[in-house]
C-alpha cells in the first residue's frame, strides 16, 4: 500500500528508538526503519508534533471516511466522525503503544467506539486500561514485529477469496451480528489464523511482561 519510509532523523523520538535499537539488535541486522505512520504517531505522542499529525491526517482521514461511509454513515456525518476520531488520536496519543498495536489497529478501535457512541447515544464499555500511567520503554524490536505483522495481515487479507474477504470486511465494519460472525467467519478466520496466532503469542508475551 505504498507505506513510504520516513527520514527518521526528522522525527526525534523515532531517532531515539533507532539508537536504542542498534544496541539491542546486534543479533538481528539489518534493522528496517519503522513505518511513517508509527514514527508520526510517536512524534505526536512524545513531542505534540503538528506536522506529524498532519501527515497522519493525510493518510488516515480519507480511509476513515471511506470506512465510516461503508458502515452506514452519510457523507456529512462521516466527516464529523473523521474529525472526531482524528482529534481523539491527538488527545489520547499518550495511550498509543507501538509495541502492542499498529497505528491502524489503534485508530480502528477509536473509530468503532465513536461510531457506536453516536449511534446508540451511550458509551460503549471498554476494557480496563491495565497499563495506565505506565512508561513505555520503546523496545524497537517489538515495534518492528508489530509492523511486520501488519504487513502479514494485509497480505493474508489479499489472499482470501473474494467471498471470504467480503465476509471479513463486513464483520469488521460492524455489518455482521455476533451470530453471523460465529457461523460465517470460521473459514476466512481459519485462513488468517496462523498469522493471528503468531501475533497472539507475541501479544500475550508483551502483555504479561508489562504487568
Amino acid at each position: 500500500m505504498g507505506m513510504s519510509m520516513i527520514d527518521l532523523y526528522s522525527v526525534p523520538s523515532a531517532h531515539l528508538l533507532c539508537c536504542r535499537a542498534t544496541k539491542d539488535m546486534s543479533k538481528v541486522p539489518p534493522a528496517p526503519p519503522i513505518s511513517t505512520q508509527t514514527a508520526c504517531m510517536i512524534a505526536v505522542r512524545d513531542n505534540r508534533d503538528r506536522a506529524a499529525f498532519a501527515l497522519l491526517f493525510d493518510h488516515f482521514a480519507p480511509r476513515l471516511k471511506g470506512f465510516v461511509m461503508r458502515s452506514g454513515s452519510g457523507a456529512a456525518q462521516a466527516e464529523e466522525i473523521v474529525q472526531d476520531v482524528m482529534l481523539t488520536v491527538w488527545r489520547k496519543a499518550d495511550q498509543f503503544d507501538p509495541a502492542r498495536a499498529q497505528v491502524s489497529a489503534w485508530i480502528y478501535q477509536i473509530a468503532r467506539n465513536r461510531q457506536i457512541d453516536l449511534l446508540r447515544k451511550e458509551r460503549r464499555p471498554v476494557p480496563e486500561d491495565l497499563f495506565k500511567g505506565a512508561v513505555f520503554e520503546p523496545d524497537a524490536s517489538e515495534v518492528l514485529v508489530v509492523e511486520q505483522e501488519a504487513e502479514y495481515l494485509k497480505a493474508a487479507l489479499r489472499q482470501l477469496s473474494p467471498e471470504q474477504r467480503t465476509i471479513v470486511e463486513k464483520a469488521y465494519l460492524g455489518e455482521l451480528t455476533h451470530q453471523e460472525i460465529s457461523t460465517e467467519m470460521g473459514l476466512p478466520l481459519g485462513t488468517i489464523k496462523s498469522r493471528i496466532r503468531l501475533g497472539l503469542d507475541r501479544l500475550r508475551h508483551v502483555l504479561k511482561d508489562m504487568r
Partner: peptide, 13 residues
C-alpha cells in the same frame, strides 16, 4: 489488528 488491516486496505473517500 485485523480491523486495522481492513481500514488500511479499504477504499478511500
Amino acid at each position: 489488528a485485523i480491523g486495522g488491516a481492513v481500514l488500511e486496505s479499504g477504499a478511500t473517500a
